[in-house]
Amino acid sequence: MYNLLLIVPLLLVYLELSSNFELSNVVVGLLIVSGILLLIRPRRRPMAWHRLPSAIVALIKYVVILAYDLIMSGIQVARIVLDPALPIQQGIVAIPSECESELGSALSAHAITLTPGELVIEMDEQGVMYTHCLDATKSEQYVAEAQKMRRDLLEKIFS
């Protein structure tokens, strides 16, 4: 029953994305949406409505910080690559993720890997992320602070 209710919003998203409201396209959309729902079979989860505003604020903050990080380190990597002397100081830095949930660790690793110049290549059971950096001379304190901020925002979003 819940799945049948989900068909309507998904179909609206499909029609909006394809921007074609002919009957044949609606039928194709219905087929695609029911296929997706059959494959994924989402279950109803209890929603904490009173936490929603702070979660949305944290999400926006997270996206803005991530975008800023991405652009700054993108420029930095481009400068390293185009420099005639090629000043790379590569190395592997261990960053403890300190997240309780597996989802939190996975999303922190995702955010780190998304940032140019940093690449998580291995994780262990304690959630330590072994990160390959183009510039491994950054101080421990800076790395730990960035991870702490990331973790706090992620916990606010998914709690």
Binding site: I88, Q89, Q90, G91, I92, V93, A94, A109, H110, T113, L114, L119, V120, I121, E122, Y130, H132, A136, T137
Partner: peptide, 28 residues
């Protein structure tokens, strides 16, 4: 999906033991 592919290749390269040229530090 972009970070997932980069992580997969990097992790595989590490597991078969490809060297890191001139590493400044190596916690792993």
């Amino acid at each position: 999906t972009g970070p997932a592919t980069a992580h997969a290749i990097g992790s595989a390269a590490n597991r078969i033991g490809l060297p890191r040229k001139g590493a400044e530090r190596d916690d792993l």
